[in-house]
Design a protein around this nucleic acid. Sequence first.
DNA 1: CTGCCACTGTGGTCTAACCACACTGTAATC
DNA 2: GATTACAGTGTGGTTAGACCACAGTGGCAG
Lengths: 232, 232
Amino acid sequence: MRTHELVLQWIEKQLSDGDLALGGRLPGERAMAEQLKVSRTSVREAVRILEAMGVVRAGVGSGKDAGTVVIAEPGSALGSTLRLHVATRHLPVADIVETRVLLESWAAERAHVGVPALEEAAELLDQMDAAPDIDTFLALDARFHVALAQAAGNSVVSAMMASLRGAIENYAGELTGNLPDWDTTCARLRAEHRAILTAVNNNDGGKAAELVAAHIQGFYKEAGVGSDHSPN
Amino acid sequence: MRTHELVLQWIEKQLSDGDLALGGRLPGERAMAEQLKVSRTSVREAVRILEAMGVVRAGVGSGKDAGTVVIAEPGSALGSTLRLHVATRHLPVADIVETRVLLESWAAERAHVGVPALEEAAELLDQMDAAPDIDTFLALDARFHVALAQAAGNSVVSAMMASLRGAIENYAGELTGNLPDWDTTCARLRAEHRAILTAVNNNDGGKAAELVAAHIQGFYKEAGVGSDHSPN
DNA sequence: CTGCCACTGTGGTCTAACCACACTGTAATC
DNA sequence: GATTACAGTGTGGTTAGACCACAGTGGCAG
């Protein structure tokens, strides 16, 4: 077993045993190295991996943002991993879109009416009506979809949803260039968003799921991502 | 931007541009360091992250297994990430099980009859009938479920399915200790597996999905993982 | 009381050396 | 001539030690 894996194992045990909780701080790199009888380099490699996994965040200096603290951001971490695998051509974009449809439809169907996430979603829709440019709109759009997924109350689905969205975020931006008329598309997307949210709030899960599926598939189809097409 | 992120960016670009493909070799660590004008340390940190993501595999020595080669194993990588987040208590086991049900039901419903994965699944069932002990059975069980997921032809769903299974693999082993009578449970599981595969091969996707959902939920319920219970 | 500044501890980076490993080519041996 | 032994080469794995930038802390001078 390689040295940095030993460090990883030790840290994972600290987490499992509850000796290290969310928001907690890892010992300094030098201290951990001495304690585990390994070099600082190995400790750093382990920390880097955890950072890439979204389990910790490293900050220099002193104060609250300093040190290596335990966080919980699986979404961005999974997103980076998927993005890299898309780059290797191993994961087709079409499969990602299809999975997104699956997860988001499921979430829309089971969204709990009245949770804060839905209120946030409503606010985001208002902000999208006033979005000055495409990029702002897309950023708000991403947050809307994540909020919708959170309303179902399954943190794994939320995280995966966010990661799928993140993995193809670059495409979404590029794809808007393929659209014949952004203003028209944007208006349609806004209307579809409101219809989805209305269905959810009316406890009409089945309809919400259908609308979400059509919404996502419609966008990518219009932008030119077919079922057997693998851009990049 | 930190130095190792620069290296990551460079490697990702090589992948995106197709200059580096699956099975290809990265330049040696020392060569990359010199080329990018960074230290070998930073190169190594980047490689470690890619290794954790399942994008590359590093091997010492010479020959075919040596050097850092591009692979595509998103499943194990995502699994490690999820496992760590389960350790932080941020991802409840119940949510993982629920997501597994979602993905596997979907895959069972859309499995393409006649693909090699289904033949492999059938062989695995035969092997499970002759499994000498629990661990062997569970290992084969894992492969059966992955094969089933692959039959749907969506690599993202397959990868996520495998990762979810991997993230709670330890639990599956521990949970068998909670069962009142393993032999009885094992016999039931084997029968359920065959029923699922039969439904799939009969093109009865709806029934296959139902059976899969009941199969998974039944096991974890019997083993004591409730909807609001979060062991470890 | 105010403002400056050295101090301290954090992660970030680099250099240079050594190790274990696995193949390769050559040379000694049978 | 075929076989065996072994030094050579290049790979990642690991370590020690140094220096940097950063951000709070606290004392000191004004």
